[in-house]
Computed example of a mutant assay.
Amino acid sequence: MAACNAYYYATRDPLGVGGDFTTAPEIHQMFGEMVGAALADVWTRIGKPVEAVYAELGPGRGTLAGDASRVLRRVGFEGAIHLVETSPALRERQAALLPEAIFHDSLDSLPEVPLLLAANEFFDALPVRQFVGDRERRVILAGGTMAFDRDGEIVETSPARAEVAEQLGRHLATHGGAALVIDYGYAGGERGDTLQAVRAHRHALVLDRPGEQDLTAHVDFKALAEAARKGGADASRIVSQGSWLETLGIGARAMALAAKNPDDTQSIAEARRRLCDEEQMGRLFKVLALRAPDWPSVAGLE
Protein backbone atom coordinates (compact mmCIF):
# COMPACT_ATOMS: atom_id res chain seq x y z
CA MET A 1 0.00 0.00 0.00
CA ALA A 2 2.81 2.41 0.88
CA ALA A 3 4.70 1.63 -2.34
CA CYS A 4 1.60 1.94 -4.52
CA ASN A 5 0.54 5.27 -3.02
CA ALA A 6 4.08 6.69 -3.15
CA TYR A 7 4.19 6.07 -6.90
CA TYR A 8 0.58 7.12 -7.43
CA TYR A 9 0.93 10.54 -5.79
CA ALA A 10 4.39 11.21 -7.20
CA THR A 11 3.22 10.91 -10.79
CA ARG A 12 -0.06 12.85 -10.98
CA ASP A 13 -2.53 15.36 -9.59
CA PRO A 14 -5.34 12.97 -8.62
CA LEU A 15 -7.88 15.62 -7.61
CA GLY A 16 -10.87 17.11 -9.38
CA VAL A 17 -13.25 16.11 -12.14
CA GLY A 18 -10.45 14.86 -14.37
CA GLY A 19 -8.78 12.95 -11.54
CA ASP A 20 -9.82 10.13 -9.26
CA PHE A 21 -11.45 11.86 -6.28
CA THR A 22 -12.47 15.21 -4.79
CA THR A 23 -11.71 16.38 -1.24
CA ALA A 24 -13.68 18.76 0.96
CA PRO A 25 -11.52 21.86 0.30
CA GLU A 26 -12.15 21.45 -3.43
CA ILE A 27 -15.91 21.35 -2.91
CA HIS A 28 -16.16 24.88 -1.54
CA GLN A 29 -14.12 27.57 0.20
CA MET A 30 -16.41 27.31 3.25
CA PHE A 31 -14.62 24.18 4.42
CA GLY A 32 -11.20 25.80 4.53
CA GLU A 33 -12.66 28.92 6.07
CA MET A 34 -14.14 26.91 8.96
CA VAL A 35 -10.78 25.21 9.54
CA GLY A 36 -9.03 28.58 9.44
CA ALA A 37 -11.57 30.12 11.81
CA ALA A 38 -11.11 27.33 14.35
CA LEU A 39 -7.32 27.66 14.27
CA ALA A 40 -7.53 31.47 14.36
CA ASP A 41 -9.73 31.27 17.44
CA VAL A 42 -7.26 29.02 19.28
CA TRP A 43 -4.32 31.24 18.28
CA THR A 44 -6.15 34.35 19.49
CA ARG A 45 -7.13 32.81 22.83
CA ILE A 46 -3.58 31.66 23.57
CA GLY A 47 -2.36 35.23 23.09
CA LYS A 48 -1.42 35.40 19.40
CA PRO A 49 2.15 34.04 19.65
CA VAL A 50 4.09 35.62 16.79
CA GLU A 51 6.37 32.60 16.33
CA ALA A 52 3.48 30.27 15.39
CA VAL A 53 3.22 28.93 11.83
CA TYR A 54 0.50 27.30 9.74
CA ALA A 55 1.34 23.74 8.72
CA GLU A 56 -0.48 21.10 6.71
CA LEU A 57 0.05 17.39 6.14
CA GLY A 58 -0.86 16.19 2.66
CA PRO A 59 -2.08 19.58 1.38
CA GLY A 60 -3.50 18.44 -1.97
CA ARG A 61 -3.52 21.36 -4.36
CA GLY A 62 -2.99 23.88 -1.55
CA THR A 63 -6.65 24.93 -1.57
CA LEU A 64 -7.22 24.30 2.13
CA ALA A 65 -4.01 26.11 3.08
CA GLY A 66 -5.04 29.08 0.95
CA ASP A 67 -8.53 29.36 2.41
CA ALA A 68 -7.48 28.71 6.02
CA SER A 69 -4.51 31.09 5.94
CA ARG A 70 -6.68 33.82 4.44
CA VAL A 71 -8.91 33.67 7.52
CA LEU A 72 -5.88 33.56 9.81
CA ARG A 73 -4.42 36.67 8.16
CA ARG A 74 -7.62 38.58 8.93
CA VAL A 75 -6.98 38.29 12.67
CA GLY A 76 -3.36 39.37 12.40
CA PHE A 77 -1.57 36.05 11.93
CA GLU A 78 1.67 36.60 10.02
CA GLY A 79 3.28 33.17 10.38
CA ALA A 80 4.77 31.26 7.47
CA ILE A 81 3.00 28.43 5.64
CA HIS A 82 4.70 25.03 5.89
CA LEU A 83 3.50 22.16 3.70
CA VAL A 84 4.49 18.52 4.21
CA GLU A 85 4.29 17.09 0.71
CA THR A 86 6.38 14.50 -1.14
CA SER A 87 4.64 14.56 -4.54
CA PRO A 88 6.47 16.68 -7.16
CA ALA A 89 3.24 17.02 -9.15
CA LEU A 90 1.27 18.34 -6.18
CA ARG A 91 4.10 20.54 -4.95
CA GLU A 92 3.98 22.29 -8.31
CA ARG A 93 0.26 23.01 -7.89
CA GLN A 94 0.75 24.14 -4.30
CA ALA A 95 3.63 26.47 -5.19
CA ALA A 96 1.58 28.10 -7.94
CA LEU A 97 -1.19 28.90 -5.45
CA LEU A 98 1.06 29.63 -2.45
CA PRO A 99 4.43 30.86 -3.74
CA GLU A 100 5.51 31.73 -0.20
CA ALA A 101 5.04 28.17 1.07
CA ILE A 102 7.95 26.25 2.59
CA PHE A 103 8.01 22.55 1.70
CA HIS A 104 8.95 19.55 3.81
CA ASP A 105 9.32 15.86 3.06
CA SER A 106 8.18 14.84 6.53
CA LEU A 107 6.93 16.09 9.86
CA ASP A 108 10.51 15.83 11.20
CA SER A 109 11.69 19.02 9.55
CA LEU A 110 8.85 21.33 10.62
CA PRO A 111 10.19 24.26 12.66
CA GLU A 112 10.35 23.90 16.43
CA VAL A 113 7.64 26.49 17.07
CA PRO A 114 3.90 26.36 17.82
CA LEU A 115 1.94 24.79 14.96
CA LEU A 116 -1.52 25.61 13.69
CA LEU A 117 -1.83 22.39 11.73
CA ALA A 118 -4.42 20.78 9.48
CA ALA A 119 -4.43 17.19 8.21
CA ASN A 120 -7.38 16.62 5.90
CA GLU A 121 -7.59 13.20 4.24
CA PHE A 122 -3.95 12.54 5.08
CA PHE A 123 -4.05 9.60 7.48
CA ASP A 124 -6.38 7.48 5.31
CA ALA A 125 -3.63 7.08 2.70
CA LEU A 126 -1.03 5.80 5.17
CA PRO A 127 -0.65 2.01 5.00
CA VAL A 128 -2.63 -0.44 7.11
CA ARG A 129 -1.92 -4.00 8.16
CA GLN A 130 -4.70 -6.58 8.19
CA PHE A 131 -4.98 -9.67 10.41
CA VAL A 132 -7.24 -12.70 10.23
CA GLY A 133 -7.03 -14.16 13.71
CA ASP A 134 -3.38 -14.02 14.67
CA ARG A 135 -2.12 -14.28 11.07
CA GLU A 136 -1.27 -11.26 9.00
CA ARG A 137 -3.02 -11.04 5.65
CA ARG A 138 -0.60 -10.76 2.76
CA VAL A 139 -0.59 -10.33 -1.00
CA ILE A 140 0.55 -13.29 -3.09
CA LEU A 141 0.76 -14.25 -6.75
CA ALA A 142 -1.88 -16.80 -7.71
CA GLY A 143 -2.38 -17.86 -11.31
CA GLY A 144 -0.30 -14.95 -12.54
CA THR A 145 -2.31 -12.29 -10.71
CA MET A 146 -2.18 -10.77 -7.25
CA ALA A 147 -4.52 -12.08 -4.57
CA PHE A 148 -4.91 -12.04 -0.80
CA ASP A 149 -3.61 -15.14 0.93
CA ARG A 150 -6.50 -15.49 3.39
CA ASP A 151 -10.03 -14.33 4.13
CA GLY A 152 -12.08 -14.16 7.31
CA GLU A 153 -12.90 -11.65 10.02
CA ILE A 154 -10.36 -8.88 9.52
CA VAL A 155 -8.81 -6.53 12.05
CA GLU A 156 -6.89 -3.55 10.68
CA THR A 157 -4.04 -1.73 12.38
CA SER A 158 -1.77 1.04 11.18
CA PRO A 159 1.61 1.45 12.87
CA ALA A 160 2.43 4.12 10.28
CA ARG A 161 -0.50 6.27 11.38
CA ALA A 162 0.28 5.78 15.05
CA GLU A 163 3.89 6.82 14.48
CA VAL A 164 2.89 10.09 12.79
CA ALA A 165 0.23 10.86 15.41
CA GLU A 166 2.67 10.25 18.26
CA GLN A 167 5.30 12.40 16.56
CA LEU A 168 2.76 15.18 16.05
CA GLY A 169 1.66 14.89 19.67
CA ARG A 170 5.28 15.17 20.80
CA HIS A 171 5.83 18.30 18.70
CA LEU A 172 2.70 19.97 20.07
CA ALA A 173 3.52 19.04 23.65
CA THR A 174 7.08 20.37 23.33
CA HIS A 175 6.60 23.48 21.21
CA GLY A 176 2.90 24.34 21.52
CA GLY A 177 0.08 24.52 19.04
CA ALA A 178 -3.10 22.81 17.90
CA ALA A 179 -3.93 20.40 15.09
CA LEU A 180 -7.12 19.42 13.31
CA VAL A 181 -7.36 15.91 11.88
CA ILE A 182 -10.24 15.42 9.45
CA ASP A 183 -10.77 12.17 7.62
CA TYR A 184 -13.23 9.38 6.99
CA GLY A 185 -13.26 6.63 9.55
CA TYR A 186 -14.64 5.52 12.88
CA ALA A 187 -14.38 6.41 16.55
CA GLY A 188 -12.64 3.15 17.49
CA GLY A 189 -13.15 -0.55 18.05
CA GLU A 190 -14.71 -1.44 14.71
CA ARG A 191 -13.59 -4.54 12.86
CA GLY A 192 -13.60 -5.41 9.18
CA ASP A 193 -11.89 -4.77 5.88
CA THR A 194 -11.99 -1.07 4.94
CA LEU A 195 -9.16 -1.09 2.40
CA GLN A 196 -10.46 0.41 -0.83
CA ALA A 197 -9.33 1.66 -4.22
CA VAL A 198 -10.75 4.58 -6.17
CA ARG A 199 -10.18 5.40 -9.82
CA ALA A 200 -12.05 7.98 -11.90
CA HIS A 201 -14.42 8.66 -8.96
CA ARG A 202 -15.49 5.00 -8.81
CA HIS A 203 -14.55 2.17 -6.51
CA ALA A 204 -12.15 -0.30 -8.10
CA LEU A 205 -10.62 -3.66 -7.20
CA VAL A 206 -7.95 -3.10 -4.56
CA LEU A 207 -5.30 -5.26 -6.24
CA ASP A 208 -6.02 -4.02 -9.76
CA ARG A 209 -3.46 -1.74 -11.47
CA PRO A 210 -1.11 -1.14 -8.51
CA GLY A 211 0.19 2.41 -8.38
CA GLU A 212 -2.45 3.66 -10.80
CA GLN A 213 -5.33 4.18 -8.36
CA ASP A 214 -5.82 5.71 -4.93
CA LEU A 215 -5.58 3.25 -2.02
CA THR A 216 -7.06 4.23 1.34
CA ALA A 217 -8.55 2.71 4.47
CA HIS A 218 -10.83 4.10 7.16
CA VAL A 219 -9.07 5.89 9.99
CA ASP A 220 -9.32 4.60 13.56
CA PHE A 221 -9.59 7.95 15.35
CA LYS A 222 -9.39 6.40 18.79
CA ALA A 223 -6.02 4.89 17.90
CA LEU A 224 -4.80 8.27 16.59
CA ALA A 225 -5.88 9.99 19.80
CA GLU A 226 -4.13 7.38 21.93
CA ALA A 227 -0.91 7.73 19.94
CA ALA A 228 -0.99 11.53 20.18
CA ARG A 229 -1.53 11.32 23.94
CA LYS A 230 1.45 8.99 24.14
CA GLY A 231 3.44 11.80 22.54
CA GLY A 232 2.24 14.19 25.25
CA ALA A 233 -0.59 16.06 23.53
CA ASP A 234 -4.19 16.40 24.65
CA ALA A 235 -6.81 14.89 22.32
CA SER A 236 -10.38 16.09 21.98
CA ARG A 237 -13.56 14.12 21.66
CA ILE A 238 -14.30 12.80 18.19
CA VAL A 239 -17.24 14.33 16.32
CA SER A 240 -18.69 14.05 12.84
CA GLN A 241 -17.61 16.55 10.20
CA GLY A 242 -21.16 17.72 9.57
CA SER A 243 -21.86 18.37 13.23
CA TRP A 244 -18.58 20.23 13.68
CA LEU A 245 -19.04 22.45 10.63
CA GLU A 246 -22.59 23.34 11.64
CA THR A 247 -21.47 24.13 15.20
CA LEU A 248 -18.77 26.43 13.85
CA GLY A 249 -21.31 28.34 11.76
CA ILE A 250 -21.08 27.09 8.21
CA GLY A 251 -24.79 27.82 7.84
CA ALA A 252 -24.29 31.52 8.60
CA ARG A 253 -21.29 31.62 6.29
CA ALA A 254 -23.32 30.03 3.48
CA MET A 255 -26.05 32.65 3.93
CA ALA A 256 -23.51 35.49 3.88
CA LEU A 257 -21.88 34.17 0.70
CA ALA A 258 -25.28 33.70 -0.96
CA ALA A 259 -26.27 37.26 -0.08
CA LYS A 260 -23.13 38.57 -1.78
CA ASN A 261 -23.42 36.19 -4.74
CA PRO A 262 -27.13 35.57 -5.44
CA ASP A 263 -26.38 33.68 -8.64
CA ASP A 264 -24.40 31.12 -6.63
CA THR A 265 -27.08 30.47 -4.00
CA GLN A 266 -27.91 26.98 -5.27
CA SER A 267 -24.28 25.86 -5.64
CA ILE A 268 -23.45 27.16 -2.16
CA ALA A 269 -26.40 25.26 -0.67
CA GLU A 270 -25.40 22.10 -2.54
CA ALA A 271 -21.82 22.39 -1.27
CA ARG A 272 -23.02 22.79 2.31
CA ARG A 273 -25.20 19.70 1.96
CA ARG A 274 -22.35 17.69 0.50
CA LEU A 275 -20.04 18.68 3.33
CA CYS A 276 -22.54 18.33 6.17
CA ASP A 277 -25.41 15.96 5.37
CA GLU A 278 -25.25 12.55 7.02
CA GLU A 279 -25.93 10.80 3.72
CA GLN A 280 -22.90 12.49 2.15
CA MET A 281 -19.69 13.51 3.96
CA GLY A 282 -21.26 14.68 7.20
CA ARG A 283 -21.33 11.45 9.20
CA LEU A 284 -18.59 9.27 7.69
CA PHE A 285 -15.97 11.99 8.06
CA LYS A 286 -14.77 12.68 11.59
CA VAL A 287 -12.89 15.52 13.28
CA LEU A 288 -10.29 15.22 16.04
CA ALA A 289 -8.29 18.06 17.61
CA LEU A 290 -4.87 17.63 19.18
CA ARG A 291 -3.25 20.36 21.25
CA ALA A 292 -0.48 21.23 23.64
CA PRO A 293 -1.73 20.69 27.21
CA ASP A 294 -1.51 24.42 27.98
CA TRP A 295 -3.34 25.49 24.82
CA PRO A 296 -7.12 26.06 24.73
CA SER A 297 -9.56 23.56 23.24
CA VAL A 298 -10.57 23.89 19.61
CA ALA A 299 -14.07 25.30 19.12
CA GLY A 300 -16.73 22.65 18.64
CA LEU A 301 -14.53 19.95 20.16
CA GLU A 302 -14.44 21.03 23.79
Rank of each mutant, 00 (worst) to 15 (best):
R91Y: 07
E51W: 06
R150M: 11
A256H: 14
F123N: 00
A235K: 06
G58M: 06
W244E: 03
R129P: 06
A10I: 11
K230P: 03
T22N: 09
T145Y: 10
A52E: 00
P262T: 15
E121F: 09
A3H: 11
G32T: 00
A204T: 09
M255Y: 11
V164S: 00
G58P: 02
E78C: 14
L248G: 03
L180Q: 04
G79F: 01
S69L: 07
E153P: 01
A269V: 00
P25M: 06
V219R: 01
G185Y: 15
R12N: 10
D149E: 13
D183Y: 10
A200S: 14
A259I: 09
P210K: 08
Q167V: 10
V206K: 11
D108M: 03
F123I: 05
I268A: 13
D13I: 13
Y9L: 05
R272T: 06
Y186L: 08
A160N: 00
D134R: 00
A165Y: 14
D208P: 11
Q213C: 10
T86E: 02
M34Y: 05
G211M: 02
A223R: 05
L301D: 02
V75Y: 08
G18E: 05
R209W: 12
G60L: 10
K230R: 15
P293R: 11
S158N: 05
A271L: 07
A65W: 14
G32Q: 01
E156G: 04
G188E: 13
Y9A: 05
